[in-house]
Nucleic acid binder design. Sequence first.
DNA 1: CTAGGGTTAG
Length: 444
Amino acid sequence: MRCHLYSQLPPPQNADKFDNIGNDVALFHHMADMHPRPSVVEFTKILGTIVQMKSYATAIYLHTYMESKGITPFIVSLNILMNCYCIVGQMGFAFSVIGKILKWGYKPNVVTLTTLMKGLCANGKMLDAVEIHNNLRAKGFQFDELTYGTLINGLCKNGQTSFAIQMLQKIDGPLVKPNLVMYNIVIDGLCKDGFVIEAHDLCSEMIAQGISPDTVTYSALIYGLYSAGKWSEVSLFMSRIVDQNISIDVCTFNIIVNALCKERMLSEAHAFCDVMIERGLQPDIITYTILMNGYCLIDEVDKARKLFDMMIKRGLVPDVWSYNILIKGYCKTKRVDEAKNLFGDMLLRNLGPNIISCNTLVDGFCKSGRILDAWNFVKEMPYYGRPPDATTYNILLAAYCKIEHLDQTNALFKHLMERVLLYVQGNMDKRSTDVPPSISNCMR
DNA sequence: CTAGGGTTAG
C-alpha cells in the first residue's frame, strides 16, 4: 500500500542547515591535514559552533576524529564532549570523559562537574548529582553560582522544590550567593507546584535582598497566579506592568494573552496584543497559536483560521502545534474534512505531523460518528511516519464501544482487537521504536 | 580564547 500524500512530500526544508554542518565538518577535516596544523583551540571553536547547531552526534564524531589524527584534546574540548554525551543521554560515555581528562593529565574543573551534574539531573540521576556535590564539597572543592543554578533547577524539575529552597538558603556564603536565576527557578517551581503565595513571598524576599525581578520572574508569577485562578492578582500584575511601563518580553505577553484566552476574554487578549505591538514587540508564532486556541475554545474556528492565514502572510512559518490547534478546532465543530485538508497541507509543506495531529483526527472522525473513516486513517498513519500508539487505540476502542454496544462478533471489532494485541506485543519486544527511522527525521 | 545554570502554547 502506498499513500500519495506521502509520495508528494517535498525535500526536507532544513537541507541548508545540513549544508552548514557539512561545511564545518569539511573545514575540520581540512584543518586536520594542514601543515602546520592549527592549534587545538581552532578545532574547539568549530566544535562549539556545531554544538550551537545542536548536532551533538557530529561533535562527538569530530572529537573522536581529532584524537585519531593525533591532536591532543584539552580541557575545553573535553568539556564540550562531556556536554554532548550528557545531552544525548549517554551518561556512561559522559563518565568516561572524566577518565580521558585524567589520562591526558588534566583535572576536571568546575565546568566539567557542572556539565556532568546537569546531565545526571536531566537523566533521572538527581541523587547522584547531589552526592557528587556533597562528596567534593566535603573535600574542599569550590563550586560556583552556575553549579548551584544547575542543581537547584534539577531539584525543582524532579519534584524536589522544598529541597531546592533549602539549597538556596544554604549557599548564602561569601563566595557563592543566591542570584536572580536561582530565585527564578525556585519561584517557577513553586508556581508550577501550585504554591503561588509562597512564590510571591520568595519574590519579596528576593527584592529585600536587593535583587530586582525580571521578565522571567513576572512570567512565572503570572503563569502561577492564573493557573491558581487568582484573577484579581493577575489583573493587579497586568495593570502594574502597563502603568509602570515595566519592561517585559514577548514570552511574558504570551502568558498574559494565554490567560485571557483561557478565560474566553478574546477582545481583552487582542487589546493586550495591541499593547505589545505599541511597545515595539512583534507577536510571534506562539502569540498567534494562543489566540487561535482561544477562538477554537469558543468554537469560532473561522476566526482562528483567519489568524492562521494572516500569520503565514506575515512570513511566520506555522509549526505542528499551530496546525494541531486548528485541526482540533475543525474536529470539535464536526468539520473533519476541513481538518483532513489541513492535515494534508501540513504534510505537503513538510511541517509535521506528529502523533497528536493524527490522534486528533482519529478522535474527530470518531466523534462525528465516522468510525470507518477513522479506521482507514489509522491504517494510513504509518505512511505519515506516525504509527498508531496506545492513545490511538484507546480513542478507537472508546468510540467503537459507544457506537456498537460491544458487539464482539463484528468483524471490525475483531480486527481492532487483533491490532491492539499486536501493538501490545510489539511494545513488549521493542519499546519506543514506534517510528520508522526513514521518515521520522523531519518530524518533531 | 574556546566550555557549564532559568521562562511560553496542544
